[in-house]
Amino acid sequence: MRALSIAATGMAAQQLNVEVIANNIANINTTGYKRSTAEFTDLLYQVERMQGIPSQAADQMVPEGAQLGLGTRLSAIRLINIQGPLAETGNQLDLAINGSGWFAVQGPNGETVYTRSGSFNIDSTGQIVTGDGYPLEPAMAVPAGTTALEVTQAGEIFATLEGQADPLAIGQLTLANFMNPAGLNALGGNLFQATEASGAAVSGLPGSISFGRIQQGYLENSNVDPVREITELISAQRAYEMNSKVIQAADDMAGVVSKGIR
């Protein structure tokens, strides 16, 4: 009975949907996290009667025909790349992007990867690095004796040195944009990698056209909406239950047939 396999695809789809929602909820407090949503498409159709062919009674065309769908499957898990709320921290190395763009950092294998999490630190050599120790690109070195750092909205970094009144310019932040941010490959640890689907990174200065501004002393929170996620979780649970009812009904119908044969 085809209803069994069709409903089984629906249950598998809703189980995966719940897993995506669970990941969103788990990352509700992850800095710079972008929520994901599962998208599905229907499977192949089995033709019971072809439309547009002559009917048996006359030469008139069959207007509709009959096609039976065979279920659903996952088509994509889409990254919803919209701005998360900014939270003030007061830390001079906490940087949030207000608008579009990604920070470029040097990954664990020397490759360039990208992040929206601007929680930076200074390592033992004075380099500005992420919480996992990955250097910011282009590399920025904070001079010894620095008492304060100032980062402008345009990404210019100034260091105030002990005993000096005028701040010293030590670097310029750049941001990266992508034609299709949803095509980035998630590596974990708030890091993403460019792919053919995302397109090559386009670098630019903060505050210029198509690039957001830098907000020093702020971090971008996750864009997960708890109310929306709970609503979608309940909806997925109900859909899963409905598909299970279809399997139960199909099994009962098959049982009636088998009992009648005996």
Results as ranks from 00 to 15, higher is better:
residue 173 L to K: 05
residue 109 N to E: 15
residue 72 T to A: 10
residue 222 S to D: 09
residue 202 V to D: 10
residue 153 Q to L: 12
residue 69 G to Q: 09
residue 13 A to H: 01
residue 80 I to T: 13
residue 182 A to F: 03
residue 60 Q to Y: 14
residue 75 S to D: 07
residue 124 S to T: 12
residue 209 I to M: 08
residue 16 L to V: 06
residue 36 S to I: 04
residue 85 P to V: 07
residue 125 T to H: 06
residue 249 A to T: 15
residue 257 V to E: 06
residue 182 A to E: 14
residue 74 L to T: 12
residue 157 I to G: 08
residue 125 T to F: 05
residue 42 D to S: 12
residue 235 S to W: 01
residue 222 S to R: 01
residue 144 A to K: 07
residue 240 Y to F: 15
residue 30 T to R: 00
residue 109 N to R: 13
residue 64 E to V: 13
residue 84 G to Q: 05
residue 44 L to K: 06
residue 70 L to W: 02
residue 75 S to N: 09
residue 82 I to G: 03
residue 99 G to Q: 01
residue 184 L to T: 09
residue 224 V to W: 03
residue 174 T to H: 13
residue 22 A to P: 02
residue 88 E to R: 11
residue 22 A to L: 08
residue 242 M to W: 02
residue 239 A to Q: 09
residue 154 A to H: 11
residue 88 E to T: 07
residue 74 L to C: 00
residue 228 R to H: 01
residue 15 Q to P: 02
residue 56 Q to L: 09
residue 245 K to F: 04
residue 239 A to Y: 00
residue 254 A to P: 00
residue 178 F to D: 04
residue 186 A to Y: 10
residue 216 Q to F: 09
residue 232 E to C: 01
residue 44 L to I: 04
residue 154 A to I: 03
residue 190 N to T: 04
residue 49 R to Y: 09
residue 227 V to K: 01
residue 154 A to P: 05
residue 126 G to I: 04
residue 219 L to E: 08
residue 115 T to Y: 10
residue 141 A to R: 13
residue 173 L to F: 11
residue 61 M to R: 11
residue 226 P to L: 12
residue 152 T to P: 07
residue 160 T to P: 02
residue 230 I to C: 03
residue 71 G to I: 06
residue 250 A to L: 07
